[in-house]
């Protein structure tokens, strides 16, 4: 069990922002920190990992105190045993894939974990390449392999998929799911993509302006506990057009466009860019295999 209570004043572009979070994570769970950019998600990860000093608060992981402002305890990042995957991956340009993974081994005799990770993350053909010779998705997998090689207790993923295309995102989400199942790691994923949160996490913490706006399982958090459709999809509003007496709202769901008939009273509340839930309970969708 991990318990986190943190407070810190951050310098945001629009003035000082107070970041205050208080949450618990059961062991082995994957939770998501969701929120717009600037909500304080990355700062939370940096404080958990010891890269940023909270003003006050405490962090404990399985009874082990990492930070406690009252007891004046602050463990160095090296002592917290965290696997942190940075947004820019932070691969070492001077090392090949093999060397990166070898470098992070705590115990040099554990060579079998290298081949295991190379298998799980399908890095076999890339072992002798340096980061400049890798695509974004490949760098991402190397960064994951590198942090897993030092057998962390906690895995922190800072928007690891934000720079990738749709298909690569999906594949990497599968990797993250399989790794999380295989190693039963307590994992915190930072994301501002609702689809990703739904797909990957058992629980979500919604951050807004440094405060927790809502938390719980993704379905209840994002549907605001109002809708009980038997068929729900999340998407983003692209366009709202008036057609006679009704409105047609074009919604991007995954990489497909869906047109939804909307009443005026609803349409005026929506604007392009809004995240929406498209739900229906009046019909049974037909599922057909296409490949």
């Amino acid at each position: 069990m991990m318990t986190v209570k943190l407070h810190r004043t951050l310098e945001a572009p629009q003035g000082p922002m107070s970041l205050e979070v208080d949450f618990e994570i059961p062991p082995g769970q994957l939770i998501t920190l969701y929120g717009e950019s600037g909500a304080g998600k990355t700062s939370v990860l940096r404080m958990l990992s010891g890269l940023m000093l909270p003003d006050y608060g405490c962090i404990t992981f399985d009874q082990d105190i990492w930070f406690d402002s009252e007891k004046k305890i602050n463990k160095r990042p090296q002592e917290r045993n965290i696997g942190y995957v940075f947004q820019d991956y932070a691969l070492f340009p001077n090392m090949t894939v093999d060397e990166q993974i070898r470098f992070s081994l705590k115990n040099k005799s554990e060579k079998n974990i290298i081949s295991e990770l190379i298998d799980v993350l399908e890095l076999g053909n890339l072992r002798h390449r340096t980061p400049v010779m890798l695509s974004g998705g490949q760098q991402q997998r190397v960064a994951l392999a590198r942090v897993l090689a030092c057998k962390p207790h906690l895995l922190l993923l800072d928007e690891p998929l934000s720079a990738l295309g749709f298909n690569m995102r999906q594949r990497l989400q599968d990797y993250i799911i399989s790794i999380q199942h295989k190693y039963k790691l307590t994992t915190i994923l930072v994301s501002h993509d609702v689809g990703e949160v739904y797909r990957l996490s058992q629980s979500v913490i919604w951050l807004e302006d440094g405060k927790i706006k809502d938390q719980g399982d993704p379905k209840s958090v994002f549907s605001h506990k109002q809708t009980s459709g038997n068929f729900q999809l999340l998407g983003e509003v692209l366009r709202i057009e008036k057609a006679d007496v009704i409105y047609i709202t074009t919604v991007l769901i995954g990489n497909s466009l869906v047109k939804v008939v909307t009443e005026e009273s609803e349409a005026i509340k929506l604007k392009a860019g809004d995240k929406v839930l498209v739900a229906s309970k009046a019909f049974y969708p037909i599922i057909q295999q296409v490949e």
Partner: peptide, 11 residues
């Protein structure tokens, strides 16, 4: 992040 990544790997 290079330095931070290395510290977090326990170095």
């Amino acid at each position: 992040s290079l330095k931070e990544a290395s510290y977090l790997l326990g170095k």
